[in-house]
Write a protein that binds this DNA or RNA. Structure first.
Ligand SMILES: [Zn+2]
Length: 374
DNA sequence: CCTGCCGGGTT
DNA sequence: AACCCGGCAGG
């Protein structure tokens, strides 16, 4: 009837949206985005082809990032959210494929190489026995006792490496992810934050994250965000065009300082770790599901408008003081109460309404945000 | 006011 | 399916 006719940009709302071109052409977001994607893809491809590392990385990192980029936009909720097929409403506007199988989000966490990292029947000699990460990565798919073995798993966004010694994992993290050289660890022991202790059982790979900090209980609230790893795969962060294009544009009033924090995958991790430090009950799963969530927040410019607090520290008010004396009615049998609207800055607030194309799909559709869950 | 999002609409 | 928006709840 009239709803979808290029809405003559009614009132304030429309004005708030696309500040550009409110005169000519109306439905232009789409083409714009596509253009961007293509550009980005091209750019990344070019740089990739020029990069020294083409197909050597032991892990799947390079592959991963590449495919991600090529496929289009990194955070289009394609399936990454791996929404929990339970709790809260189950309707799900999107559903991201009817797959309700809670399969492990980790693409490479397959139980194939959990057994062991090397096929030597010999028991470990005195010290740390770690397969060199650069030589064998996911071999030795078979053989393992039915005993629970403690291992250490790399928590990096897309590295599911599991080693059996603590030093090994540290070394792995340092070398591969932090890109640290032996002498540059002057900063601090960040490696401690990137691995977790897991207990391997039998053949199935069941990881159990330990609440307390593994190894060293160092409590670093905020690891210094700095650009690390010179050549390691860095997630393709689709910075807002305003930021990437730079001064090319003129109209928009986007100062976009973005001074301290900026790009590189690790950036996304700082948050996670920060949270992690304060609120531990986390299973490796949430990492995968949250990694994307935090990334944009850190890398994207907060909307200049609105003098609200633009601090990027999760409120995380009360982690639920579960004890006795609960008066609320536990049995929620009766009419469900609208889900109590979550209290976490959602895409709208984070990116601002003028960067709507950066919101998660759910937010754009005015559905429950899937990027910044509660 | 503003923000999150359910329900329901159109393509 | 994907996409969008009215309108409501709740701060
Ligand atoms: Zn969202």
């Amino acid at each position: 009837m009239m709803p979808q006719v290029p809405p003559p940009e009614h009132g304030a709302q429309a004005m708030a949206y696309r500040p550009v071109s409110r005169n000519i052409d109306v439905p232009k977001r789409k083409s714009d985005a596509v253009e961007m994607d293509e550009m980005m893809a091209a750019m990344v491809l070019t740089s990739l082809s020029c990069s020294p590392v083409v197909q050597s990385p032991p892990g799947a990192e390079a592959n991963f990032s590449a495919s991600r980029v090529v496929s289009g936009d990194p955070w289009k909720e394609s399936g990454d959210v791996s929404d929990s097929g339970s709790s809260t409403t189950s309707g799900h506007w999107s559903g991201s494929s009817g797959i309700s199988t809670p399969s492990p989000p980790h693409p490479q966490a397959s139980p194939k190489y959990l057994g062991d990292a090397f096929g030597s029947p010999q028991t470990d000699h005195g010290f740390e026995t770690d397969p060199d990460p650069f030589l064998l990565d996911e071999p030795a798919p078979r053989k393992r006792k039915n005993s629970v073995k403690v291992m250490y798993k790399c928590l990096w966004p897309n590295c599911g490496k599991v080693l059996r010694s603590i030093v090994g994992i540290k070394r792995h993290v340092k070398a591969l992810h932090l890109g640290d050289t032996v002498d540059s660890d002057q900063f601090k022991r960040e490696e401690d934050f990137y691995y977790t202790e897991v207990q391997m059982k039998e053949e199935s790979a069941v990881a159990a994250a330990v609440p307390s900090a593994p190894g060293t209980p160092t409590v670093e609230p905020a690891p210094t965000p700095r650009v690390t790893s010179p050549s390691l795969a860095t997630l393709p962060l689709p910075l807002s065009k305003a930021q990437t294009s730079g001064p090319e544009h003129s109209g928009l009033e986007s100062p976009l300082p973005s001074g301290a924090l900026s790009k590189s995958a690790p950036g996304s991790f700082w948050h996670i770790q920060a949270d992690h430090a304060y609120q531990i009950p986390v299973s490796p799963h949430i990492y995968t599901s949250i990694s994307w969530a935090a990334a944009p927040a850190a890398a994207s410019p907060l909307s200049p408008v609105r003098s609200r607090s633009l601090s990027f520290s999760e409120p995380q008010p009360p982690p639920a003081a579960k004890s006795h004396l609960i008066v609320t009615s536990p049995p929620r049998a009766q009419g469900s109460a609208r889900k109590a609207r979550g209290e976490a800055k959602k895409c709208r607030k984070v990116y601002g309404i003028e960067h709507r194309d950066q919101w998660c799909t759910a937010c754009r559709w005015k559905k429950a945000c899937q990027r910044f869950l509660d």
